[in-house]
């Protein structure tokens, strides 16, 4: 087919390059498709805050507070005001400013849920989590501040 050895060489190089591109593409796809969230317990907190003063920051100016804490890992020290477990696969812990009704809610997953299930109302704890955001609820007429992938520190 290729009598000219130069053409053979070009074909060989083209096939090798195409194969390499395919391999790199597959590796990049595999990398992104199998990414998982980092374990919060292994991450250092960007901020350590007291629950009530943290809530007050949002009540005062939620936009500024959201910008300040966006995508940060935060450790919150406070008192458990409610534990909510509507189904076996959900465990949420709340710390509420009882004066205003605004609250922080921590969602737990997997093995962190087991530790969270041991908490009860009135417990003094430190919970570390990935900050979502703090927004006003028309239903509750208060701010709710969301954390995901939380872990009980003590």
């Amino acid at each position: 087919m290729f009598k000219n050895p130069k053409n053979k060489k070009v074909l060989k190089w083209s096939l090798t390059a195409a194969g390499a591109v395919l391999l790199i593409g597959a590796a990049v796809y595999f990398y992104y498709a199998t990414l998982t969230h980092e374990d919060t317990a292994s991450l250092k907190a960007d901020y350590t805050v007291e629950a009530i003063s943290f809530i007050k920051e949002f009540e005062k100016d939620y936009k500024t507070a959201n910008t300040k804490y966006a995508e940060k890992i935060i450790a919150v020290k406070g008192i458990v005001t409610e534990t909510e477990q509507p189904v076996d696969t959900t465990m949420n812990i709340k710390m509420t400013n009882t004066t205003t009704g605004s609250y922080i809610i921590f969602a737990f997953q997997n093995e962190d849920m087991v530790k969270a299930k041991k908490l009860k109302q009135g417990d003094k704890v430190k919970i570390k989590g990935s900050f979502g955001d703090g927004i006003y609820s028309e239903i509750k007429e208060a701010y709710f501040i969301n954390f995901q992938r939380s872990t009980v520190e003590k």
């Binding site: 990414l35 998982t36 969230h37 955001d133 609820s137 028309e138 709710f144």
Partner: peptide, 16 residues
Amino acid sequence: VQFEAAIKSFTFSNPK
């Protein structure tokens, strides 16, 4: 019947 959901609280298994 009312619902409110924070968009940032939707958790995917894949962070990307």
